[in-house]
Design a protein around this nucleic acid. Structure first.
Lengths: 328, 328
DNA sequence: GCGATTCATGTTAACGTTAACACAGCCCAC
DNA sequence: GTGGGCTGTGTTAACGTTAACATGAATCGC
């Protein structure tokens, strides 16, 4: 702040006034200060501000673990492990996921003086923006995106998990396996779809059946309807997540098709409730707890400047009743 | 800290050393300092510590909105609204939910200098512990528990929602309505069960059918099995949440019972996927977004010392296909 | 028994911000 | 034209902690 004041030719208090929108600042002084701020890339220190004012502009949110599962479980696992290691968590969520939003949140973390950042990035642009904004900070990326060397990364092995799903189906004897994929641009959706395609015999990849959904059960239902209307419907469907698999199950039921006799279905995620679909869903479980724990472990290593490491969490197949041998 | 030093008869630096486990402190001085700390209820100011050391023991976690739903959605709604009002969120989760744990987290918030606290309390003991630990701070409780007057409170109207479920079922003509309840001690479970019981004719309350589950689909499945084994099984089931309703649906299907012809099922929550169960689930939707938004709004009012207010968010019925008239 | 080392403690000065006060210079009203 | 109020600015002193250095006492080795 002293640097800014010197460059702008005013006192540090005037800089403070500009920062706090105090009315008594001349337009000229304000402009000079703002220019100096951008020129120097100055960011105010929130710890000092909190100390001086007595209020932090931070609120605490207390939540109970039991109410959260799935990807939010990863966040809780991070928090839990952070606490046992003497750290606390400041949260920033992305509504839009735009570059600007990522940068806004990252800057806040820096202002606050965080010791490190864990970013769960679902799109490549979020990955890129995080890398840009957090370059000075120990950072762990939780993502399936492409990341330059020298970054700590954790991920559930999406590709491997999808391969497991396909192995199950092909092992059962299916050859005509359709895919209900997640939305375009989503990294998980892309990884799962890629593994599905690769596990098909080269000859079949051209006429491979894929319908794009948006992760919702309803979109899975619509996809299944589209698949049913084909001349040669598939004998099995690999849905990119459990919710879309629910939709496939429902469409089959309503069409009078028996699962797994007439159609096999495999999902991905193993969300709560998937053990009691009709029939119980065969799926690939993602271990979000392990993901969160690994993310925190890596961040601690990053903070201690230990060598860069990447972790892949293996998903595991859950065999239930929705996949069986095709009727020849 | 100066007070502690004075009371212990040492310098403030010695107090600092005790706090940071510095080796060079005599046992006697340490003991005196610790006694003074507890006697005065001293807590160290983290903003000052961060300012002096340059590290905050806080990590930032960036998550994307899309990955979270349900109760975690409430947290994200809080975060989103906080951000648009110039606040940031510090998170503390409860693994055990014990009194000590609540107090630990609350103390951290105080140390950190938060401007207010929102506590999502699922048990009465969590409510009580929060009230005790946060008495000095603007606080909003998100809970269905009993709270003394003079507290800001937000809640989804559990009782009203359960009444809606029963109104649907009774309106359809059902008289023998069983309840699959949530676990004992859970405030939501208690409120839903109470509303169910009250909506029964007085004469039937004695022999009312209730089976206690643990929110899991599997427990709903087991409950439905128990209900099926009765001499006079119910014609309808009100499940305290959607996942347990999934289990009821599955048990009915496996027993060859058609839903809703042979059995009507109503859930509670409207979780993602409930639109594609077999058949699609009639349920009561909880609006977690509105809950989070209201919680933040109230906290802002609490921070501004505006008059105490309580908000109840009305849940809304979602009519789908799992409830119908009983076959007479 | 004397210098060198360790230990326990105190003193002073940061850390980066805002609050409180002081002080010009200006305008306005009487 | 003089006193009282605004406006813009600077100076000084907090805020509560830790780091760096200084000091005095006790211990050790030879």
């Amino acid at each position: 702040m002293a640097d800014v004041a010197a460059l702008a030719g005013v006192s540090h208090q005037t800089v403070s006034r500009v920062l706090n929108d105090h009315p008594s600042v001349s337009a000229k002084a304000r402009e000079q200060v703002l220019r100096a701020i951008t020129q120097l890339g100055y960011r105010r220190n929130l710890a000092a501000r909190t100390l001086a004012t007595g209020n932090s502009r931070v609120i605490g949110v207390l939540v109970s673990t039991t109410s959260l599962s799935g990807p939010s479980g990863a966040m809780l696992a991070i928090e839990e492990n952070a606490r046992t290691n003497g750290y606390w968590v400041s949260m920033g969520s992305l509504q839009v996921g735009s570059r600007d939003e990522v940068i806004e949140v990252a800057h806040h973390f820096i202002d606050q003086g965080v010791d490190g950042v864990i970013a769960v990035a679902q799109t490549q642009s979020a990955v890129d923006a995080t890398l840009e904004a957090c370059s000075q900070l120990p950072t762990v990326l939780v993502t399936s995106g492409t990341v330059p060397d020298g970054c700590f990364t954790v991920d559930i092995d999406q590709h491997g998990g999808a391969q497991q799903a396909m192995t199950i189906l092909r092992g059962l004897g299916h050859t005509r396996i359709a895919h209900v994929s997640g939305p375009a641009g989503d990294l998980h959706a892309a990884a799962r779809a890629a593994a599905w395609r690769e596990s098909l015999p080269a000859a079949e990849r051209e006429r491979a059946l894929v319908v794009t959904g948006d992760w919702s059960a309803q979109s899975g239902y619509q996809a299944a309807l589209a698949l049913q209307a084909l001349d040669h419907p598939p004998t099995a469907v690999f849905a990119a997540n459990d919710r879309m698999a629910y939709g496939v199950l429902r469409a089959a039921y309503e069409a009078g098709a028996h699962v797994p006799r007439d159609l096999s279905v495999v999902g991905f995620d193993d969300i709560e409730g998937s053990d009691c679909t009709i029939p119980p869903l065969t799926t690939i479980r993602q271990n979000h707890d392990a993901l969160g724990a690994a993310a925190l472990q890596l961040l601690l290593e990053a903070i201690r400047h230990e060598p860069v490491r990447r972790v892949k969490i293996p998903p595991e197949p859950v065999f239930r009743a929705s996949a069986g041998a095709p009727v020849s």
